[in-house]
């Protein structure tokens, strides 16, 4: 599997993965067959925007706007790389 993002990639959660808020754990988790990944707040904010409609620059811009922090480009791309390698997201 390539870990180099396509220039126009619009990442989305991999099939069969589900992102949801867990009230008891007070955090987002990623669910898949018989397993769970616990997410910190920034990972969850990035993954929430991986819906197949936004490309990476759009995701970055949205996060910079929402959290009034910039630049976030390097951090977001580094996380997306990990998520891709783990099979959490496609594209």
């Amino acid at each position: 599997m390539s870990t180099t993002p396509e220039v126009h990639a619009t990442p989305r959660l991999a099939r069969h993965f589900r992102l949801q808020w867990e009230e008891v754990q007070q955090r987002h988790v990623l669910l898949y067959p018989e397993g769970m990944v616990t997410l910190n707040a920034s990972a969850a904010e990035i993954l929430k925007r991986c819906d197949g409609t936004r490309d990476v620059p759009a995701i970055v811009a949205e996060l910079e706007e929402a959290f009034d922090r910039r630049p976030l480009d390097t951090d977001v791309r580094a996380f997306l790389d990990i998520a891709r390698r783990q099979g959490w997201i496609a594209a």
């Binding site: 867990e22 009230e23 008891v24 754990q25 988790v29 669910l31 018989e34 397993g35 769970m36």
Partner: peptide
Amino acid sequence: ALGAVQCG
């Protein structure tokens, strides 16, 4: 309600 998230 207890927090179980995977159900088999």
